[in-house]
């Protein structure tokens, strides 16, 4: 009886957005009198940080710092339609809608600035700090604060924009299944290293090294949050989680956090995250949806590592000590 070590690899891809498309999201953007920008949506932040990412996308597009953007979302009396937060669609769909709305607002903003500076709008650029300046002559500039005041009180212009993003729905061909499920895919490869106690069947995940390709890390710290938490959930799925431990039998389903098992803070694998960015053709600044796929590759990587360690295949999830012990017993019996 011994602690045996093994490692396994898995590589995956994942489609961004609702499969087959047909899932619209809209956004509205307008400036306040002093040049702050309100983004109005009905998208939902589940904790992944949708509000923050929409603020950064709007800020980048308008050309202001992110703290000049306010997100008003998920009130159906004010926010235009969003299909919802699921299918790794939030950043991609809502982000594109915000870009479109923000571009329209930016254009009005530049037109008002052009009138104030008596130049052509096409000759203007933003400095990202809250000012609009003449390309090649940055000394000739006006603050967005002043542009917004002018638009509101002097020129009667609404610095605002409407955005809508919809990927037309694809209908699978009945006999061949020809279809367009998604416009872009994220990728991942995970290597997991485990120890398996062949006496108890217990698995300890020592390390997971995850490489994720996500199009563009719009906010790297938030990407890291999502990927670290997802990697944890993948390991949890691999080894612990089930509402019906003896499926298809319905008995013994866990009803609380004592019975429904997940790794706690003392059960963490040493986790490494490496991010690659191949911008997608239609993503906001090239972003794809990383939210779901980041929890997928750990499951087979751990399963393959368990085999590498003790030479038994557990093809039923979760990979419990009981299943490992039964397999080891069967293996020993030849």
């Amino acid at each position: 009886m011994a602690i045996r070590r093994g490692r396994g690899v898995a590589a995956i891809n994942y489609p961004t957005g609702m499969n087959l498309g047909g899932d619209p999201t809209q956004a509205l953007v307008h400036s306040t009198p002093t040049g702050n920008f309100m983004v109005t949506l009905s998208s939902v932040d589940l904790g992944q940080g949708m509000k923050q990412i929409m603020a950064q996308i709007c800020a980048e597009t308008i050309g202001v710092p992110t703290d000049r953007v306010i997100i008003d979302t998920a009130d159906t009396d004010t926010g235009p339609h969003c299909m919802g937060t699921f299918a790794s669609r939030g950043t991609h769909r809502a982000g594109n809608a915000v870009i479109q709305a923000a571009k329209e607002a930016r254009q009005v903003m530049l037109e008002v600035a052009a009138e104030e500076l008596e130049v052509n709008a096409s000759d203007l650029e933003t400095d990202g700090q809250g000012n609009i300046q003449v390309k090649g002559a940055p000394q000739k500039s006006i603050s967005i604060f002043d542009v917004a005041l002018s638009a509101h009180f002097k020129r009667g212009r609404s610095i605002s924009g409407r955005g809508m993003f919809l990927i037309p729905r694809s209908y699978p061909e009945k006999e061949t299944g020809a279809m367009k499920p998604s416009t872009c895919y994220a990728h991942a490869c995970t290597v997991a290293e485990v120890e398996v106690d062949d006496e108890t069947g217990e698995v300890t995940v020592l390390t997971v090294k995850n490489v994720f390709e996500i199009g563009r890390a719009l906010n790297p710290k938030m990407v890291e949050q999502q990927l670290v938490g997802g990697s944890w959930m993948g390991i949890s799925h691999a080894l612990y989680e089930t509402t019906e431990p003896y499926y298809p039998n319905r008995d013994h389903g866990g009803t609380d956090f004592n019975q429904y098992l997940m790794p706690g803070p003392g059960d963490l694998a040493q986790t490494e995250i490496i991010v690659l960015e191949r911008p997608s053709a239609d993503g906001p600044f090239g972003a794809k949806g990383p939210g779901e796929m980041c929890a997928n590759p750990q499951i087979p990587a751990v399963a393959n590592a368990v085999f590498d360690a003790v030479g038994v295949r557990i093809d039923t999830l979760p990979i419990t000590p009981e299943r490992i012990l039964r397999a080891l017993k069967a293996q020993a019996a030849g």
Binding site: G47, Q48, Q225, V228, G229, G230, S231, W232, M233, F257, M262, G264, P265, G266, L268, T271
Partner: peptide, 20 residues
Amino acid sequence: DVVEALSGNICRCTGYEPII
């Protein structure tokens, strides 16, 4: 010590490491 102190608190999003 930190792991022990947090062991009665469930988090489903972060994977605990950032909290530790």
